[in-house]
């Protein structure tokens, strides 16, 4: 299906969002302290930041929260479903995150359907904005995971100065736009030209190229020895930041909390970088050595993910580069990988 294409004047943005907010919780990028941007419920629509940096916080938490109550079990044998079914519209999402969600969908919904993710996903509409100014950390352009998407989005906006070029790519997006069709008009030739201009300039400024496929081939060729992973992991703080911030990391653990007569089951983000992650009975730690855990994280992203889900476990969002205290991130590790493997022939 070719996406429906429309024009929305920025003057009408707040009206549109206000209408959407009548039915859904409106989440948008708002200013935190200093230059921080956070995604949270929008109180005042005019506070939404439109002049955004490329790297925004991940929206993974709205579909797969860090701490998620699942159900309550009462001693009367009653089970209360605690699934969140809040209807949300998230404005200002990055293309890389939208791409990540199409992979998360495969993980959570192909075959066994994770009901918690499914419910949230069905109730969420994403309005993404094409990214015009990439940051030094991110590299979506070479991976085709951004900054401009052909498909996978609900609604994609391209900033043309005084107006947005709007593309509708899903039934959810269609409904969010078409019910307010009086706000939108058909694009003219000049609009297409302007949109192409933005597309070109955003492509031109996205210069960082990291070849995940190249890295995958190097690893599969057997040229990357464990010494490399030892060297990479020696500064790892085991904080889990790369996992927590990655839009494609999905590990969780489950815990039961006993409040007197009520037992609440909760799921929480977990991370394969923690040595306790694979703790076995009897206190055995199969991955006690740090390099084994670092190695597995990169293997998961570069080998297992493509094998299982037909896509890399990385969309080039650059968040691991920011989160890692010692810069053991996807981009720099792949660069070092190529240098090391290259020098060893």
């Amino acid at each position: 299906m070719k996406p429906t294409e429309l024009i929305l004047y920025k003057d009408h943005l707040s009206y549109w969002l206000r209408q959407l907010r009548k039915e859904r919780e409106l989440i948008g990028p708002l200013r935190g302290e200093e230059t921080d941007i956070v995604f949270k419920s929008v109180e005042n629509i005019h506070d939404i930041v439109l002049d955004l940096p490329a790297i925004l916080p991940t929206v993974k938490e709205f579909l797969f929260p860090q701490y998620e109550p699942m159900f309550k079990y009462l001693m009367t044998d009653e089970v209360v479903d605690l699934r969140d079914n809040t209807k949300r519209v998230i404005f200002g999402v990055r293309s890389c995150d939208v791409t990540a969600l199409t992979l998360l969908d495969k993980f959570f919904l192909d075959g066994y359907k994770d009901p918690f993710y499914e419910e949230r996903r069905n109730e969420t509409v994403l309005i993404s904005i094409v990214c015009g100014r990439p940051e030094p950390e991110c590299f979506c352009a070479g991976l085709n995971t951004g900054p401009y998407l052909e498909k996978g989005f609900d609604v994609q906006l391209t900033d043309l100065g005084d107006r947005f070029f709007v593309q509708v790519g899903s039934p959810k997006g269609h409904s969010a736009v078409m019910r307010f069709s009086f706000l939108f008009r058909k694009p003219y030739k000049a609009d297409y030209e302007d949109q192409y201009e933005v597309f070109l300039s955003s492509k031109a400024t996205s210069q960082k190229r990291i070849s995940l496929e190249g890295a995958r081939q190097l690893i599969l060729s057997g040229k990357v020895k464990d010494d490399f992973w030892r060297m990479i992991s020696d500064k790892c703080f085991e904080c889990g930041g790369c996992v927590y911030q990655c839009p494609l990391c999905t590990c969780f653990t489950v815990t039961d909390r006993v409040f007197g007569d009520i037992i609440e089951r909760v799921r929480l983000w977990d991370a394969c970088l923690f040595k306790g992650f694979t703790r076995l009975a009897g206190g055995i730690l199969p991955n006690e050595e740090r390099y084994l855990r670092t190695k597995r994280w990169f293997y998961h992203k570069l080998i297992y993910y493509p094998d299982a889900l037909n896509g890399f476990g990385c969309v080039g969002c650059g968040r691991c580069t920011i989160a890692c205290p010692t810069k053991i991130d996807m981009a720099s590790v792949i660069t070092r990988l190529k240098v090391t493997a290259g020098s060893e022939g």
Binding site: G32, E33, E34, T35, D36, V38, E61, P65, G241
Partner: peptide
């Protein structure tokens, strides 16, 4: 429901 670091801190 979660924690995230401040980037400009």
């Amino acid at each position: 429901s979660g924690v995230s670091p401040s980037r400009s801190h």
